[in-house]
Design a protein around this nucleic acid. Structure first.
Lengths: 98, 98
DNA sequence: TCTACATATCGAATAATGCCGATATTAGAT
DNA sequence: ATCTAATATCGGCATTATTCGATATGTAGA
């Protein structure tokens, strides 16, 4: 929604990677215990990037607050999905204003 | 050239504004002493945003290092231009990877 | 050459980010 | 109720970003 907040969220390469990984879940998260249709489980990002749990949680939170991801809690897990609508809207807006 | 560097450059709202202003020079820099075809003189940004000369110079430098602007010095002045090729290439790449 | 002007760079202060380990929160299982 | 597991939040520290004034550099004109 807020262009500046989105651009700040994208200013960290790891967060951009998260979004890229999520474009091809079957490729990058094939070892997930839960079905990929539920979204990507937070712990998957930890395993994949090697940073601490709290750091990864903060990055995911940044992406969510920017509107690029949505969260849904199922049991003790947090599943994240790309918000394709907002992503597309942002790209469109950036393309026209930049 | 480097996507991360460009995204970092765009993470500051003022720098995005600089790029936007430069899309319509006749609208935002109509009081420039030099012809707009030469580019936008560095001091124009100062006047328009109210920040100090050194700060504005640093912002312009950031945009230039990221490849979003080009500089040309004419006499004692520095003229900046949008690098439309790089901007378009970045937008295209971002659209396909994001 | 000396002076004035435009811009870049330096040094320092403050704010914001990124990272971690530790703790809190919440859910599921025993 | 207790224990375990997953995630979020907190406190602290290191790094980076932002801003300024002061200084350096480089150009133009008297």
């Amino acid at each position: 929604m807020d262009r500046t907040e989105i651009l700040k969220a994208l200013a960290h390469p790891l967060r951009v990677e998260f979004l890229e990984w999520m474009k091809e879940p079957e490729r990058h998260f094939c070892n997930q215990a839960h079905p990929l249709e539920m979204g990507i489980c937070a712990n998957q990002f930890e395993k994949r990037c090697g940073l601490s749990q709290s750091t990864v949680s903060a990055h995911l939170s940044t992406l969510e607050k920017a509107g690029l991801l949505t969260t849904s809690r199922v049991g003790q897990w947090a599943f994240y999905r790309r918000d394709e609508e907002n992503i597309a809207a942002f790209l469109k807006e950036l393309g026209s204003t930049l």
